[in-house]
Simulated scan of single mutants.
Amino acid sequence: MNGPNTRHRSASKNKPTPPSVNGHTPNSVIKKDTDSSSMKRSPSSSAKNFCCSLGNAHFLKWRAEDLWGVALHHPLPCAFAASLLFFMVVEYTLRMIPPTAPPFDLGFIATATLHQLLESRPALNTILAGLNTVFVGMQTSYILWTWLMEGRPRATISALFMFTCRGILGYATQLPLPEGFLGSGADFPVGNVSFFLFYSGHVAASVIASLDMKRMHRWELAYTFDILNILQVIRLLSTRGHYTIDLAVGIGAGILFDSLAGKYEDSKKREALLVTSGNTYGAFYNSPK
């Protein structure tokens, strides 16, 4: 009865088995087995897996109708791709502006006639500068009104974000005043004082105000601000008060900081829901929009 078969069964019975929980082998044991098996993999298997992943690449599944569908249903990205190729050619073939030469500005070239007109008529330049200052006052008044009178601080927060960033960037890279600058004591900042060129706070603040008007469905007022902003851009280029890049980035800055102010406001509203009702978070609490 104690023959070889019996000894073999007893030996297998005494072999330690991995502990189980509710009939399942613990993850540590599985991980140990997996690690030992992965160590045994040869470099050829890794290369084979890499080739398999390349074989499953997304673009290999494209068909002719898929490519046609991109051009048909996504014209804007296709236009961006074409412009990328175009400007790559321009960038590699364009001659750089010498250090002693003034910057090349396409906006200055487009407004050369208006620049000559304002240069020959200082009184007209002063009148337009005064109107521009009035428009800046309109922007500021509306932005503060939305917070102080309507309890909607988003435009005010956006303007604070925007002007702080403008101060940092404007000081970090101080652009030279454009040649032929036509200053006026009636222009904003009033008194013909120095100012940061990059980027245009005039344009950015106008965009912030216009976006708020559109959120509130004040379409007529918003379109009026947009038209005045376009006229402001033309005047600033004509007087050489800003480079074209200052104005273009000003538009983007207004959109960007309006979005960031909205995210900031939403985060504070979510926080307010988690605290006691006695906390009002100051004058920025529980605004409609």
Rank of each mutant, 00 (worst) to 15 (best):
G130W: 15
F135R: 01
G183N: 12
W62I: 01
F80A: 06
R218I: 05
T173I: 13
K15E: 13
N279Q: 10
H217R: 12
H115Y: 10
S53Q: 10
F80H: 09
K269C: 06
C165T: 14
D35H: 11
F161D: 03
L118E: 12
A123F: 08
F80Y: 09
T133C: 08
A272N: 13
I157W: 00
Q174T: 06
S37V: 01
R95C: 01
R9Q: 15
S200P: 04
A209F: 01
L131A: 15
L175T: 07
A186T: 07
S210V: 11
I109W: 09
L169S: 11
P26F: 11
N22I: 07
F284A: 05
Y171R: 10
A205V: 08
I157N: 02
S158D: 11
V193Q: 09
T140V: 12
R235C: 07
L118M: 13
G151H: 06
S158M: 08
F104D: 02
V207W: 00
E271H: 07
P19L: 05
I255H: 05
I109V: 15
R235G: 09
N27T: 07
L60I: 14
L60W: 11
S267M: 11
A47K: 11
G185I: 15
F86E: 00
A129S: 15
R218A: 05
A261S: 14
H115G: 11
E65N: 11
P43H: 13
S158C: 13
R7T: 04
D258H: 13
L76K: 09
A82R: 02
S287N: 13
A248G: 08
D266R: 14
P103V: 09
E265D: 14
